[in-house]
């Protein structure tokens, strides 16, 4: 159960992965987000240079995506992109596994590519691994998640949540399945279609330790309304 606003904000990766967003739009997004104290801001690689100056001196980490959104790169390219981003002082990497190979059940491919990126993302930097559950056959979700964990994932993430892919939203049962298969030390990030406080709480109750949302500000504002007894805070 989430008790404080700081605790809520600390669960959220406030996210903007809009293709072609301008530097001004990203700078505004960062400036608006900073006062809310989110755990991290999650952006595309080409926006890192815009966000870093805004986030410097705050407690908010910067997360950047690697091989987004389909993960269809060779591992060498993913490792290089992660290394480039770490050189730029990014604190967290959200990498996408090769979703085609994951759909085939090529678990050694998944484990090896995660391990290659892990080498570029040294602790204490966090490596989150996106396994795009909505397009995986049900029976492969657990094994792919375990392969990502074996490769060195700190967190396994349910989905890119990328709307241009036209995939379904993440469900609490996705999170519960990951929780049942991963070790307690491995975190779970729920992402994809989490648009309000009720949905976020459902994911956390199911076992999510982090939530990706493009509407983080609205979610925290909803929390404030609820704390003030306003019925709009569901």
């Amino acid at each position: 159960m989430i008790v404080t606003e700081a605790e809520l904000a600390g669960l959220i990766d406030q996210t903007n992965l809009e293709m072609g967003a301008s530097a001004q739009e990203i700078a505004d997004f960062c400036t608006r987000s900073v006062p809310f104290g989110f755990r991290a801001l999650c952006l595309l690689p080409d926006q890192v240079g815009v966000a870093l100056p805004v986030l410097r001196g705050t407690s908010i980490g910067l997360a950047a995506c690697v091989s987004f959104p389909l993960g269809l790169d060779r591992w060498e390219v993913k490792a290089r992109e992660a290394a480039d981003l770490c050189d730029l002082e990014v604190a967290e990497i959200d990498m996408v596994v090769h979703t085609g190979r994951a759909r085939e059940g090529d678990l050694s491919w998944v484990e090896q590519e995660v391990a290659a990126v892990r080498q570029a993302v040294a602790h204490p930097r966090l490596l989150k691994v996106i396994i795009e559950i909505p397009v995986l056959p049900d029976e492969l979700v657990g094994p792919v998640a375990v392969a990502a964990e074996a490769g060195g994932a700190d967190l396994v993430k349910t989905s890119t949540g990328y709307k241009r892919l036209g995939i379904r939203a993440t469900r609490a049962e996705d999170v519960r399945l990951l929780r049942s298969r991963l070790s307690p030390a491995t975190g779970i990030k729920a992402a994809g279609g989490i648009r309000n406080l009720g949905q976020l709480e459902e994911m956390v109750e199911a076992g999510a330790t982090r939530v990706g949302a493009s509407r983080g500000i609205e979610i925290v504002e909803e929390w404030r309304l609820r704390q003030a007894g306003d019925p709009r805070g569901r």
Binding site: M19, G20, L44, P45, P69, E81
Partner: peptide
């Protein structure tokens, strides 16, 4: 997306 880092794009 056209959003990769320069080094990874070249690689």
């Amino acid at each position: 997306l056209g959003a990769m880092t320069s080094g990874s794009r070249i690689a």
